[in-house]
Amino acid sequence: MAINISGVGTQPTLSTNKNDRVQKDEANNASQSSSVNSKESLAEDTVQLSSVAQSLQAKGSDNESEVDMDKVEQIKQAIAAGEYKIDTEKLASSMLSIDELFA
């Protein structure tokens, strides 16, 4: 048994008139240029960090110096040589510890 539903499978009619597209583009361009002009007249935005944020920022730059670059280089070389071994039990234990923080 066949069911005929009108409108299913038909494509909507699109306006392909070049003048319609040009008018829409011109309207979009006009609205964009007016919004740009209004933005240019606005004052500049400023941001002030709280003392807590400033101290965290200073601590963040201190942490960069705590990276042991010699150890990083050793690990890179071991990975490149295929000699880097992963302790899977230690990894699994660490993952479980992290999971418990969110439980």
Results as ranks from 00 to 15, higher is better:
Tyr84Leu: 15
Ala81Thr: 06
Gln57Glu: 13
Lys90His: 06
Leu49Pro: 01
Ser41Pro: 03
Ser34Ile: 09
Ser15Asn: 14
Glu26Ser: 05
Ser97Met: 06
Lys18Cys: 03
Thr16Tyr: 07
Ala43His: 05
Gln48Trp: 09
Asn19Cys: 11
Val52Met: 12
Ser35Val: 11
Leu96Asn: 15
Leu49His: 13
Asn63Asp: 07
Ile75Glu: 07
Leu96Ala: 11
Ser50Val: 02
Asn28Phe: 08
Thr46Leu: 02
Ile5Tyr: 07
Leu101His: 06
Ala2Trp: 08
Leu91Ala: 10
Gly60Ala: 13
Ser94Leu: 12
Ile3Met: 04
Phe102Gln: 05
Ile86Leu: 11
Val8Trp: 00
Asp62Gly: 13
Lys18Arg: 09
Glu26Met: 06
Thr88Cys: 11
Thr16Cys: 11
Phe102Pro: 01
Ser34Asn: 12
Ser41Thr: 06
Ser65Glu: 05
Ile75Asp: 09
Leu42Gly: 02
Val22Gln: 14
Ser31Asp: 15
Ser97Gly: 12
Glu83Leu: 09
Val72His: 02
Ala30Val: 02
Val52Pro: 02
Ala78Thr: 02
Ile3Thr: 01
Asp20Ile: 00
Lys59Cys: 08
Ala103Arg: 15
Ser97His: 07
Thr13Glu: 05
Gln23Arg: 14
Ala92Met: 12
Lys90Leu: 14
Gly60Ile: 05
Ser51Cys: 05
Glu26Phe: 02
Ser33Pro: 00
Leu56Pro: 03
Gln48Ile: 07
Ser50Tyr: 02
Ala103Trp: 07
Ser35Lys: 08
Lys85Pro: 02
